[in-house]
Nucleic acid binder design. Structure first.
Length: 836
DNA sequence: GTCCCAGAATTTTTT
DNA sequence: ATTCTGGGAC
């Protein structure tokens, strides 16, 4: 009722801008309003003043400031779990409620469709109405498409251009590379596609790419190929994802009058996850947000609000520039910076651990999350060790089942409230295997997406070609799928024919079957294909699109192809095709569906099932779980070796941010794991605990004793003798703090892989009541590279339980480099070897 | 045109 | 080790 939206016309596409806030009709409004008010009227006005709109109540002061500071540039630094989305959505609601702008005058950009969807939903909830009225809320790319469809001709496209996904792009580039006579084996199309993507992320045209880059590919043909690629896109009337950003930028630059229209249109601009913007997105935003002084010299206010968290910037490797957020105040002078640091998600232990870890980064704006929640029962962050990744999976599974049965307080936990977040997706398999054995429900988030599956892409290619006969990539994809006897030779002839006449391949096919250029067999097959598409195109207007889609798949023989396929995955593929048709029902037309699919590539998960989530740390951003398991905290894996090699210190810091993201996903419980042995590329490698573990504050962390109650190496088994010499714990950490912690339980851990010690979680008491009251990290930093004399010397002959015999070739603290007779050179902790 | 074997690749992911 | 891709052979 009093939500302040009663008279906002939500579906008004282009209303005249209103100058004044919309005042709710008040009983006091009348002749006397504004002048000498009656007592009753004044009281009522005061009451109305005092009563804040519903949507503002419950915001903390910083959030409220972020919502109410509507004029000028604002940067909201929103730490994990500080109500970022709430601020964004409430801010939009506030703009609408105060009548500052109509829905169509607000530009709100997100990175993912999911985020956009969520925002729409939440705004709708706040406003109590539909949100179709926010036409400019969407991803950078979807808004880019919208702009381009309106102004396609300004960049040399027609408005029904096709959007190519990565797969299409790679195939296209491959053709170009081959056409140039370049060895596509030596210079993979995939690699060049990645290069182009990188250039486009930086906003670079072929003419602008650095000379070095241009030379780096195919013996200096980089620039040439990039140019050829762009030309080919244009002739196909197609865009890749990068173009969806770059074309609007080109268009705005070349057409200031068009840009001016949008300046007037977008009165408020909001950007989510600003730390993830790349250079192209940044340029795009600058164009729209930075308005030149008009002729009269009066500047339009830049009502730009960017929300982000520099500590959660984890996409540098795909072009995101953390720098964008770090220099916001310089870019937008007079910007107001608001920090949201009050966390509503996690316990103080979790926040303490995460905060202490991230404080090791240098390039950051600096925030410290805090919470009022102080529950003595809150668990510390727990660090676990396991022998290898198999045991890690087993132990995590065990812990999950324990929580499921009921924790210490007897509370039973839902699997939905738990997640396993891994650094690299190959880690998932071991958990899946284990959970299958246990019969534990799990869901993998991320994986190959629905629309990327082979059969879906094939089907989509049929649909695309029916709607857009000029879509050569679609044509080439399905012309011989199912097999029609139209092989390379035929396609090449057709291709040349089409290029020579500058017509689409489908049109070329229609021509060429009138000639005798093809062998009769191919000619007949092609004739049928052309006839099919002609027929389907004829049905496009008047046949319900789901029906037509089914008909296409059946008549083309595509369905039959999978029905006849006796491989294990064929039934699943048919099921997916059915699912595809089902999902089309929500759309008006085939065309509308295609538009949707090219940008919105997610498939929804089954939410009903109670299941543990398994996903990468990257895909966990933005989510939260009661209990979070973070396996694989080992040097080389996390931080990932390649991040270190390629990114140096910046790479390390990004890995650390990833660790920070991981820990802050947890609301109540956070378990970290490292293993001593991990199979990488099929080879067992002995591994060292991640440096990030050393960077955690002891005060908020406890070390779980190796808990052998988890099946496996049970009491007295071979495990005992197998591992008791390894003593990974006592040697895992060279740091005094850890050693001291180990010292406390030397006896218990002497045989830490062998005995059944039951439930055993040991607390390290530093920082509070520990024996010395010293903190680990103070010493850690000083001694990060241990110089303690090793009990080995270079040249020693040693034996390793996994790798066998070898000679030590180098020693660095307790880390030995050993040339194994069989396993080759490895770096190993000295605790893992003994004299041979 | 199809099938099979050998060799390569194997961080993270959106649009 | 395993999976996928590409080239070469049938």
């Amino acid at each position: 009722m009093s939500n302040g939206f009663d008279d906002i016309p939500f579906f008004d596409e282009e209303p005249a801008p209103r100058k004044k806030p919309v005042a709710a009709p008040s009983p006091s409004s009348g002749p006397s309003a504004g002048g000498g008010l009656g007592i009753a009227a004044r009281a009522m006005a005061a009451r109305d003043q005092a009563r804040q709109p519903d949507y503002l109540s419950g915001l903390n002061p910083e959030q409220r400031e972020a919502v109410e500071t509507l004029d000028g540039p604002v940067l909201v630094l929103a730490g994990a779990g500080t109500g970022k989305t709430r601020v964004l959505t409430t801010r939009i609601a506030h703009i609408l409620a105060t009548g500052r702008a109509f829905p169509s005058q607000i530009l709100a950009v997100t990175f993912t469709n999911k985020a956009a969807r969520e925002m729409k939903e939440r705004i709708g909830h706040l406003v109590g109405g539909q949100v179709e009225g926010m036409p400019w809320l969407g991803t950078f790319h979807s808004i880019g498409v919208k702009l381009l469809r309106r102004h396609a001709e300004l960049v040399g496209l027609s408005s029904d251009f096709t959007i190519l996904d990565t797969d299409d792009v790679v195939r296209l580039i491959k053709q170009l590379i081959q056409a140039e006579g370049i060895d596509d084996k030596r210079w993979p199309a995939k690699q060049f596609a990645a290069m182009i993507d990188g250039w486009k992320n930086k906003g670079l045209d072929p003419a602008q790419i650095p000379e070095g880059d241009a030379r780096a590919f195919a013996n200096g043909k980089g620039r040439e190929l990039y140019t050829a690629y762009q030309n080919r896109l244009k002739s196909l009337n197609a865009c890749d994802f990068g173009d969806l950003l770059l074309h609007p930028i080109r268009m705005f630059r070349a057409n200031p009058d068009v840009l001016r229209d949008y300046h007037q249109k977008f009165r408020y601009i909001l950007v989510d996850e600003y730390q993830d913007t790349n250079t192209a997105q940044y340029m795009w935003l600058r164009l729209l947000a930075q308005r030149p002084a008009s002729a009269g010299g009066k500047n339009e206010p830049v009502n730009l609000c960017c929300v982000g968290d520099d500590d959660q910037s984890i996409y540098g490797w795909r072009g995101a520039e953390v720098d964008n957020i770090l220099r916001f105040e310089k870019d937008f002078p007079g910007a107001k910076v608001i920090k949201l640091e009050r966390n509503y998600r996690s316990t103080e232990h979790i926040l303490g651990a995460a905060g202490h870890l991230i404080a090791h980064n240098e390039g950051r704006l600096g925030k410290t999350l805090f919470t009022d929640r102080t529950d003595p029962d809150d668990e510390k962050v727990v660090v676990h060790a396991a022998w290898d990744s198999e045991e890690e999976a087993r132990a995590v599974g065990e812990e999950i089942e324990r929580l499921q049965r009921g924790d210490a307080t007897g509370r039973k936990h839902n699997l939905n409230d738990m997640a396993i977040l891994v650094r690299a997706s190959f880690q998932m398999r071991e958990f899946e295997d284990r959970f299958v054995t246990l019969g534990l429900n799990y869901r993998v988030i991320g994986g190959p997406r629905f629309y990327e599956r082979l059969e879906i892409r094939d089907a989509m290619a049929y649909f695309r070609l029916v709607c857009q006969p000029a879509d050569d990539l679609a044509f080439e994809r399905i012309v011989n799928t199912p097999k029609r006897g139209l092989g390379d030779t035929t396609i090449r002839t057709l291709h040349d024919y089409a290029r020579a006449r500058d017509i689409p391949m489908l049109a070329a096919a229609a021509d060429i079957i009138e000639t005798d250029e093809l062998k009769p067999k191919a000619r007949k097959a092609l004739f049928d294909v052309v006839a099919d598409f002609r027929r389907w195109q004829g049905l496009l207007e008047n046949t319900p699109h789901t029906e037509l889609a089914e008909q296409i798949l059946d008549e083309s023989g595509y369905t039959a192809m999978w029905q006849n396929d006796k491989s294990a995955e064929a039934p699943g593929r048919l099921e997916n095709l059915k699912e595809l048709i089902r999902s089309m029902e929500a759309f008006e037309s085939l065309r509308g569906f295609l538009e949707h699919v090219s940008l919105v590539m997610d498939a929804e998960q089954n939410e009903d099932l109670d299941a543990v989530s398994i996903m990468t740390l990257h895909s966990a951003k933005g989510l939260e779980f009661d209990t979070v398991f973070l396996p694989g905290w080992e040097e080389g894996l996390f931080p990932h070796q390649r991040a270190l090699d390629e990114g140096g210190r910046a790479g390390l810091e990004e890995e650390r941010r990833l660790a920070y993201v991981g820990i802050t996903r947890a609301k109540r419980r956070c378990h970290l794991w490292f293993v001593s042995n991990r199979r990488i590329h099929g080879l067992w490698q002995s591994t060292m605990p991640s440096r990030f573990l050393d960077e955690l504050p002891p005060m908020h962390v406890e070390v779980a004793e190796v808990d052998t109650s988890y099946g496996g190496y049970g009491r007295g088994g071979y495990g005992q003798s197998r591992f008791d010499k390894a003593e990974p714990f006592t040697n895992s950490y060279s740091t005094p703090g850890w050693k001291r912690a180990q010292q406390n339980r030397t006896d218990a851990t002497r045989d830490n892989w062998g005995t059944r010690s039951g439930h055993a979680v040991e607390r390290i008491g530093y920082g509070e009541s520990g024996p010395r009251g010293r903190t680990i990290e103070g010493e850690l930093v000083a001694k990060s590279t241990s110089t303690e004399p090793s009990r080995f010397a270079v040249g020693d002959r040693v034996f390793h339980i996994k790798f066998g015999n070898g000679n030590i070739s180098a020693i660095e603290g307790n880390k030995l480099t050993i040339d194994f007779d069989r396993a080759g050179q490895k770096r190993v902790l000295d605790g893992f070897v003994e004299r041979a």
